[in-house]
Design a protein around this nucleic acid. Structure first.
Lengths: 352, 352
DNA sequence: ATGAAAGCGCTAACAC
DNA sequence: GTGTTAGCGCTTTCAT
């Protein structure tokens, strides 16, 4: 197999191109060929390879030898079609930019790999329509389960999933009616507790800086819980700055700047998540606004970075990785329908 | 289908359990049944569904009606077995904690979804042995291609991939001999250019703070390039602090603290990546070390957060998302073997 | 303990 | 334009 390539230098940018192609789709070794080579029947090879049923030691040795010699790699596509489950678990997630989802996948993939399952994923970009299309595409793989974020789906999506006979796991939220299984924590309660904490600390003129809550419905629930708790206490939200687009450090920084320009009298600001809060924190550092005496800052997620800032960020730590682990465990163990509330932890940092 | 669940409150922790189970593995609708219901042959259904070959408008309508009515979802497993490719692209990546890999996946998944391909992934945790096992597992799915980080693989992994007849894409590096396709940028050159920049700025007593370079071989190449350039210039690295474990903000913070305790005379520090550098930046903020006059800081990756800090981070911006996009494009277009060097961009921030 | 044979649900010739 | 048929590479009875 001869090949060539052309290496470009960084200065020249992307100009790499082929020199020669030659990918002989080499005839893949099949189980039948292994059986032939080992001088046994196909079913014996199958049993040996899956270490199931009974076979003699001698048969096993001959099979393994043949497998080795021929470089046989089983075809899971065929195996899946012949047997039952695909051992594929499909994740249909809103984003990969928000650290929440990589964390979720990380927790899940460890458990799945340990149980001979494979993770498949697709990104909806917070679009329910795309979600529906992607769930349909995923179901075509007959996955063991489909995992998706939250409870807000198109009716079509829900119907499809219910009709599919697959397990369905809705994660990172528990405030809603699950199709089958839910694993996560209460965003609404997180919002409420954040408000209670700020009030307890004596803050009264409180603002909010957030990202697009139409799309990120879980952030929306936190916001709703937060506002409700403030009103109940008699100190309703003073002002808010909601930026379009996804959350980011830069967006939090700008959001706080704009909010303070309008409402300079605030004594505390609640952010839609830690990324946004860190941005706000940077704004204060840059402007010499002292934290928390002049302005208190409170986030959500409990990212590691918030523990390394000169003043640890006050926030709520959520069990994102564990959500993935638990979701995967329930799936591989074929657990019954249930809601698992993993809870969260309020972290009293130094910024509020 | 009756179900029940028990919702726990955050305080109670994870105690959710089932109340009733009843997942009838409902007989899935097959293409044959659709054909039957529509009063046409199986192949017609197949043609209509794939919109390929010819069929009358009338036939199409009847098929679609039946599909709709029966809630038919094609079985891709069967389809793949019957035809050629699986339209699955396998990513075997070291980690999901390092933002580099979610970025890569993000770029790739967009392109793949637009071309009816599916991303599958597994995480090696920087372990070549796990990588080998996971590549084997992935090959069993007969993916269109397997994508993995860098060129450092076990000989067994390489052999397996070559024998598989699948496309192989090695990403995020170009300093090495690719099996088939490589897409990325030169880590070695990035290290060299970082050194050149610091020297040009007049820094002379330079140190390094990094994470485990045995495992993260690309960080190791940057470090090597960096040191080599310093030596060539006659100002070899003064001291270094290498922490075990993965990179993180906290690790960078502690690393710089330890480095400065040993070598207080440094005037600049190169970090293994932006996470580490941000940690170092926080350390300086906390200790009142003024940047860059007392100490200069230089990172790698060009994360967004580095642009929102009070002083923008000096770093090298890498095309991570584009690496994923290009890799996916080459795969879906079945491009020839080649090396694509996407280059990188040095960002002159305010920290060095 | 082991082999023969019947599918799994679809695609791809190939006739008509 | 449309139906028939032979696989794709396995797993799984069911004999033996």
């Amino acid at each position: 197999m001869e090949r060539g390539w052309f290496v470009t230098s960084p200065q020249e940018g992307r100009t790499g191109f082929k020199v020669s192609v030659d990918f002989k789709q080499q005839a893949t070794v099949t189980l039948a060929e292994v059986a032939e080579a080992a001088g046994v029947g196909e079913s014996t090879v199958s049993r040996v390879l899956r270490n199931e049923g009974s076979f003699s030691r001698k048969a096993r040795d001959r099979v393994m030898e043949a497998v080795e010699r021929l470089g046989y790699v089983p075809n899971r596509i065929a195996g899946t079609l012949a047997s039952a489950g695909s051992r594929l678990v499909a994740f249909v997630i809103p984003s990969l930019s928000n650290i929440v989802f990589p964390d979720l996948l990380r927790g899940a993939s460890g458990v799945l790999e340990a149980n001979q399952h494979q993770a498949v994923f697709a990104v909806t970009d917070y679009d329910p329509g795309r979600e529906e299309a992607l769930v349909a595409a995923m179901l075509a793989w007959r996955p063991t389960a489909v995992v998706l974020a939250g409870f807000e789906h198109n009716e079509g999506t829900r119907k499809m999933m219910r009709a599919s006979g697959r397990r369905v796991v809705e994660v990172l939220d528990v405030d809603g009616e699950p199709v089958d299984i839910a694993v996560g924590f209460s965003n609404r309660a997180a919002g409420r507790e954040s408000a209670a904490f700020l009030l307890k600390r004596g803050y009264r003129r409180i603002g909010y800086v957030g990202h697009d809550v139409e799309r990120d419905t879980r952030a929306g629930k936190r916001y709703a819980g937060f506002c409700a708790a403030l009103e109940t206490a008699g100190f309703p939200l003073v002002d808010r700055q909601i930026s379009p687009g996804p959350s980011s450090v830069e967006s939090g920084r700008q959001g706080l700047e704009q909010l303070l320009a309008r409402s300079p009298g605030l004594d505390a600001v609640y952010f839609s998540n830690d990324d946004m809060a860190i941005g706000g924190y940077f704004h204060c550092l840059a402007r010499g606004i002292s934290i928390p005496s002049q302005l208190a800052i409170f986030g959500y997620n409990g990212l590691d970075i918030g523990r390394a800032t000169p003043q640890p960020l006050s926030t709520i730590r959520t069990p994102r990785v564990m959500t993935g682990q638990v979701a995967a465990e329930l799936v591989v163990s074929n657990a019954p329908s249930q809601v698992v509330d993993l809870g969260f932890e309020l972290v009293e940092g130094a910024t509020a």
